[in-house]
């Protein structure tokens, strides 16, 4: 029975997964290398199991790209962002952001994803999502927030990009069908080190283009609207997102600290107008949700005071 289902899964998605039909993409080998960064002695059956799992989940999701592949690519993108600006070396802060982020993500349709949240040591105002569940927010944005509800809503926005595969789609749209196969090979090559490392780095750069150019406007509006819904589901006041966008709207667009965010997103005014049109009063009955928390004040509030 189980065997039969696996065989069915293999049959179902083998053609889908071969994003590079004519190439020498060795899927099992690829997954084996993905399991351990460079230890080629990794257990063969583990690798095969991982392969089967990936195929099964891809079949379940009925998509061409499975969760394992998305995570490999997403972590490559996260590695690139963190190569630019590392995490703030503050364990209680990082733990706190994970408590909030995970709680919000758990109200979504994918609570089992490998959700990880981090604050980067960057004074600019921005936040990033990657396929597979790594979400980053800059210290600069964090220090502009009034309360935990605002943090929850921003994380809800980024979580939505991951849930709806916005980056995955953008990469495919920009790079064509073969993009993911090539990118996977690239990321694996990079992690393997050696002669192919530069090739791998180039593949990651190719993907990171989506973070330089930004997503489709519609995807941003969807992330705002669904981010508010997730925020409300988690028990927060969803209109806290409006507060964040008003903070951003009040910033001088010429200010260097918002350059990347403003270049990759619709203007805050546009986003507020969309929220006004699409959400309006629809979430009013949840607007009495939590805004301030003692844990926010103890960690972020303290940092905000120190920064003044």
């Amino acid at each position: 029975m189980i065997k039969h289902r696996i065989a069915q899964a293999l049959l179902l998605c083998a053609p889908l997964l071969c994003v590079q039909p004519a190439s020498a993409l060795d899927f099992n080998n690829l997954l084996k290398q993905m399991n351990g960064s460079d230890n080629s002695s990794s257990n063969k059956s583990d690798a095969i199991n991982a392969g089967i799992n990936a195929l099964k989940s891809a079949a379940e999701a009925n998509r061409t790209i499975g969760p394992e592949e998305e995570k490999t690519i997403g972590d490559g993108l996260a590695a690139n962002l963190l190569g630019g600006r590392p995490l703030v070396p503050n364990q209680p802060l990082q733990h706190y952001v994970n408590l909030v982020g995970r709680w919000v993500a758990d109200q979504s349709e994918l609570p089992k994803l490998d959700w990880r949240f981090g604050v980067t040591n960057d004074n600019d105002v921005n936040s990033f999502s990657t396929p597979g569940g790594a979400i980053l927010i800059t210290k600069g944005l964090l220090l502009k927030l009034r309360d935990e509800a605002e943090l929850a809503c921003i994380l809800g926005h980024e979580i939505t990009h991951t849930l709806k595969h916005h980056h995955t789609r953008a990469i495919q749209a920009a790079k064509g069908k073969d993009a993911f196969g090539q990118a996977l090979q690239g990321v694996v090559a990079y992690k393997g080190g050696g002669a192919k490392q530069q090739l791998g780095a180039n593949a990651i750069k190719g993907l990171a283009e989506v973070q330089v150019r930004g997503l489709d406007k519609k995807d941003e509006f969807e992330a705002d609207v669904n981010g508010m819904v997730l925020c409300a589901r988690a028990g927060y006041n969803p209109y806290a997102l409006v507060g964040v966008l008003q903070t951003l709207d009040a910033l001088n667009p010429q200010d260097g600290t918002v350059a990347l965010m403003f270049a990759t997103h619709p203007t805050p005014t546009e986003r507020l107008t969309k929220i006004d049109e699409i959400v309006g009063d629809k979430l009013d009955s949840y607007s009495q949700g939590i805004e301030e928390t003692a844990r926010f004040d103890a960690i972020v509030g303290k940092m905000e005071k120190a920064a003044k």
Partner: peptide, 29 residues
């Protein structure tokens, strides 16, 4: 003001840092 933030150029020239991703994963709850 202060330290310059992550720019387009930084994203294009950064060296991927997998150690930081591992660290990020240790913070997961």
């Amino acid at each position: 003001t202060g330290v310059k933030g992550l720019s387009k150029e930084d994203i294009q020239t950064a060296v991927p840092n997998y150690k930081e991703v591992e660290k990020l994963s240790t913070f997961a709850v």
